[in-house]
């Protein structure tokens, strides 16, 4: 067996010395990390740590004050459309149109993304996120938060993009739904999708992610990888999270 040096792989996502100043305050400060294709990376942190802001810079919604963000090796600012085309984004407290049902919502937003899918594909995605069939034809304004979240996740799946950005994806979901969601994310990663999720759920992050980064006050203050058992040690991360004051 020969020890062959691995081929250099272009990261799906890369933040390099990323800084962001908003309204005079430094929201992100020298944040650097990469997410390899097919990897699940969780950014962990408390409220105001800069997690969601980091995601928004990858989408080009916010421009870095310093450093850079790249998607598939290309500077986001140089081609925002290309970056957004490669990413499916699930915002925190995802809300689609309340006056439309699940099918109409998915069809509309997929149209905007330039994707046309048939009814069977919609049903398959909704099955995958376990949205009850009897709810699918109802207007979303009658949905619970969890059901809305599931529909938004279905939209992200149907986008069929190589990268998923998930902002507090399990917020509002019941424990069973959370387990199902984690299983789904792992399956997606196994199929080659790159996932960057931000969360303040230490247990969830350690359960699903290949690597965890800990954000505090806009700085990346810790990084954790799976040990020999193939899992990140929850206790270690929790201790770091608590010791460093969360945000």
């Amino acid at each position: 067996m020969t020890d062959v040096e691995p081929l250099a792989v272009t990261p799906a996502l890369e933040a390099h010395a990323l800084s962001l100043v908003r309204e005079g305050s430094r929201v992100l400060d020298d944040v650097s990390f990469t997410v390899a294709p097919g990897e699940i990376y969780a950014l962990l942190g408390g409220n105001g740590a800069g997690k969601s802001t980091t995601l928004l810079t990858f989408l080009g919604f916010l421009s870095p004050s310093g450093g850079s963000v790249q998607v598939n090796g290309r500077e986001v600012g140089a081609d925002v459309a290309a970056a957004r085309g490669a990413i499916a984004y699930l915002p925190e407290a995802a809300t689609l149109y309340g006056h439309l049902d699940a099918y109409e919502n998915l069809a509309y937003f997929l149209d905007l993304a330039g994707r046309r899918v048939d009814r069977a594909a919609l049903e398959a995605a909704l099955d995958q996120v376990a949205l009850p069939p009897e709810a699918r034809g109802r207007r979303m304004q009658t949905y619970s938060k969890g059901m809305r979240q599931k529909t938004a996740i279905a939209l992200a799946l149907l986008r069929d993009t190589p990268i998923l950005l998930l902002d507090e994806p399990t917020s509002g979901l019941d424990p069973v739904a959370i387990d199902e969601f984690h299983a789904m994310v792992k399956a997606l990663a196994a199929a080659g999708r790159t996932v960057l999720m931000v969360t303040h759920d230490v247990y969830g992050a350690c359960q699903v992610a290949d690597r965890v980064g800990l954000l505090r006050g806009g700085r990346l203050v810790g990084s954790f990888e799976a040990g020999p058992q193939g899992r990140i040690d929850t206790e270690t991360v929790h201790a770091a999270f608590a010791a460093r004051g969360a945000s």
């Binding site: 984004y89 915002p91 689609l96 986008r159």
Partner: peptide, 10 residues
């Protein structure tokens, strides 16, 4: 929050 979803569709 649907503005973000709109823009994120490219």
């Amino acid at each position: 929050g649907t503005l973000a979803v709109h823009l994120a569709q490219g």
